[in-house]
């Protein structure tokens, strides 16, 4: 049994955000972090490992520096780490990204007992599309927004969140699950893990390694091939600061403004 986890390295959009002089985002100047939901996905896999002793494989597509993150994931308890990296993959939209990741997962191999885990959403692209698209490409059933997973043999019972409640779903392995933060509390690296992670090799799947996979259509990957294109990117204007109301009677001033505007 294997748990295959897709993990993305992302700029920390919650931390300090850097802009270039022309107002566009300066990604290079921003800290990178492991996508938060993906740590919940890894934790779900590690819990299965604790219970059933499965192999945990982490896969990340991105430029070479993502290797550092993969080592950290090994230190948290993953057994095998794969970096999917190649110039041909750069600029991929979610359709293209999921195609490449699906091919990488395929190369690892999804057996009848296996589960693929993704985060629900990456905090940079913010689309939440890659998980379901990988599932479609691999012909796996999917459950998104997982907040609870119980495994009994090859059968999983999953609590899937809705805005106004939840669904309880049952699915057999192999399947793909996208995880939200309510699912669990990710563990930290442990000391032994930190020592051992440097002995493990980080495998690299480049374009050559994946291009012959039947899932790869060479004309729908990368910036050129992606079905969606960024037509324009811009920053929203900051709204001008409004009026500050000062003094002990600030609340009274506000009440009279609201009354004048017939809002109260």
């Amino acid at each position: 049994m294997k748990a295959i986890v897709c993990v993305k390295q992302v700029p920390d959009t919650a931390g300090k955000v850097a802009y270039k002089p022309d107002g566009t985002l300066d990604r290079a100047a921003m800290e990178v972090v492991t996508n938060p939901d993906d740590l919940n996905a890894l934790e779900a896999a590690l819990q299965l490992k604790d219970e059933a002793g499965c192999e945990v494989v982490v896969i990340s597509m991105g430029p070479a520096p993502a290797e550092g993150m993969l080592r950290e994931l090994l230190a948290r308890g993953a057994d095998r780490a794969i970096l999917v990296s190649g110039r041909e993959f750069g600029g991929s939209d979610t359709f293209a990204t999921s195609q490449i990741l699906a091919a990488a997962v395929n190369r690892v191999g999804v057996g009848p007992d296996d589960i693929v885990f993704c985060g629900r959403q990456a905090i940079d692209g913010d689309t939440a599309q890659v998980g379901p698209q990988i599932a479609e490409k691999l012909h796996l059933p999917q459950v998104s927004y997982a907040a609870e997973i119980k495994k009994d043999g090859n059968q999983l019972t999953v609590k899937r969140m809705l805005e106004d409640g939840f669904m309880m779903l049952r699915v057999d392995t192999p399947c793909l699950i996208t995880c939200i933060k309510e699912l669990n509390q990710p563990r930290y690296m442990n000391v032994r893990g930190i020592f051992e992670c440097f002995d493990k090799e980080i495998e690299v799947f480049d374009y050559e390694a994946l291009k012959d996979d039947p899932l790869i259509e060479t004309d729908t990957i990368g910036l050129k091939g992606s079905p969606t294109n960024v037509f324009k990117a811009f920053t929203p204007p900051q709204k001008g600061a409004g009026a500050m109301l000062n003094g002990d009677d600030a609340a009274a001033k506000l009440a009279s403004i609201l009354a004048e505007k017939h809002l109260i």
Partner: peptide, 23 residues
């Protein structure tokens, strides 16, 4: 882009072989 739309949309886009804009 509800919790259901964001489950259905990407699955359909992949099957229909087309792009999908999120949210």
């Amino acid at each position: 882009a509800t919790n259901i739309g964001r489950d259905l949309g990407p699955r359909c886009a992949a099957r229909l072989h087309t792009g999908l804009t999120a949210d």
